[in-house]
Simulated scan of single mutants.
Amino acid sequence: MHIDVITCVPKLLESPFNHSILLRAQKKGLLEVVVHDLRDYATNNQKQVDDYAFGGGAGMVLMIEPIAKCINALKEKRQYDEVIYMTPDGKKFHQKTANRLSLLNNLIILCGHYKGVDERVREKFITLELSIGDYVLSGGELAAAVVVDAIGRLIPNVLSDETSALTDSFQDNLLAPPVYTRPAEYEGMKVPEILLSGHEANIQEWRLEQSLKRTQERRPDLLDGYEL
């Protein structure tokens, strides 16, 4: 998978893409993430990428011309499956969306900043608008990092044990069950006996029951339409 991220603050993305699972994915050649500095596509010597909003009001707006130049340059190199814009008013990002995007080959992610982008960018170039929650960040960079991480870990062979991703929370509309590790007892707190039994079928049944219980207690909305 190849992902191009467009931002006017590229240094914000240096750390998320250069550690842990995403770094391993890139070293394996399974994922390539390229960060593009929007200022490199500015149309004047001042490297200006934002301007005041027509009609007045507080805050600056990312201009269409640098964004158009960047996206058009990228499209000359490859065909993209989605051009994503990170914005608070986008579609809520869910695990199902991550699953779908992980099956694609080439993505562009545009990070909003300031008051957002010129609306004509959204009309002309964007195919999918995403939000990671009902709150506002200083820019779309951290949101883009969240999306890339969620997608990247789902690519086959990125995780050492691929079944790990399949048992994550939200994969089947359930929260993950409780997990335990050594020691088996700590200050009188014991690991459930069923997990020490070695009986795989009973363990899986226990985990499903715990997932259902935890989801009912913490996120009952996820169980709407769920067939028990």
Results as ranks from 00 to 15, higher is better:
Gly139Gln: 05
Ser160Cys: 07
Val147Asn: 08
Val179Cys: 08
Val179Ser: 14
Phe170His: 10
Leu174Ser: 02
Val136Met: 00
Val158Met: 09
Leu166Pro: 03
Leu142Val: 14
Pro183Cys: 06
Asp168Pro: 03
Met189Trp: 10
Thr163Ile: 11
Arg153Ile: 11
Glu162Trp: 06
Gly198Ile: 07
Leu159Lys: 05
Ala143Gln: 11
Asp149Ile: 02
Gln204Asp: 13
Ser164Gln: 11
Pro178Tyr: 05
Val136Ala: 00
Gly152Ser: 06
Gly139Trp: 05
Ala176Asn: 14
Thr167Met: 14
Tyr135Thr: 01
Leu196Asp: 03
Asn173Pro: 00
Glu200Leu: 14
Ala184Pro: 00
Tyr135His: 03
Gly139Ala: 13
Ser169Glu: 10
Ser169Tyr: 11
Glu205Val: 13
Ile203Asn: 10
Val158Ile: 10
Glu200Lys: 15
Lys190Gln: 11
Tyr135Phe: 15
Pro177Gln: 09
Leu174Thr: 01
Val148Ser: 03
Leu195Phe: 05
Ala144Ile: 08
Pro192Phe: 03
Asn173Glu: 00
Ile155Cys: 05
Leu166Ser: 14
Glu205Tyr: 09
Glu185Phe: 01
Pro156Glu: 11
Ile155Trp: 06
Gly152Val: 04
Arg182Leu: 09
Glu200Met: 07
Arg153Asp: 08
Gly140Trp: 05
Asp149Pro: 02
Val146Trp: 07
Val146Pro: 02
Ala176Lys: 13
Val191Leu: 03
Thr181Asn: 11
Leu196Tyr: 04
Leu154Cys: 07
Ser138His: 05
Ala165Leu: 02
Met189Phe: 12
Lys190Asp: 01
Leu137Tyr: 14
Ile203His: 09
Val146Arg: 06
Ala145Tyr: 04
Val147His: 10
Asp168Cys: 01
Asp172Cys: 09
Gln171Ser: 13
Leu142Lys: 04
Pro183Arg: 04
Pro156Lys: 12
Glu187Val: 08
Val147Met: 12
Asp149Val: 02
Gly188Asp: 09
Arg182Met: 04
Thr167Val: 12
Asp134His: 06
Ile155Gly: 07
Ser169Leu: 08
His199Ala: 13
Ser169His: 11
Ser160Arg: 12
Glu205Phe: 09
Glu193Asp: 15
Leu174Gln: 01
Pro177Tyr: 15
Glu141Ile: 02
Gly140Phe: 06
Pro178Glu: 05
Met189Cys: 09
His199Glu: 13
Val191Gln: 01
Pro156Leu: 12
Val179His: 13
Tyr186Ile: 07
Gly139Tyr: 05
Glu185Met: 09
Ile203Glu: 07
Ile155Gln: 08
Ile203Asp: 08
Lys190Ser: 06
Phe170Arg: 00
Pro192Thr: 06
Ser169Lys: 12
Glu193Phe: 02
Phe170Asp: 00
Ser164Ile: 09
Ser169Pro: 13
Glu200Arg: 15
Glu200Gln: 15
Gly139Pro: 09
His199Leu: 13
Pro178His: 08
Val146Ala: 14
Asn202Thr: 10
Val191Pro: 02
Ala145Glu: 04
Gly188Trp: 07
Ala145Pro: 02
Glu162Asn: 14
Thr167Asp: 14
Gln171Lys: 13
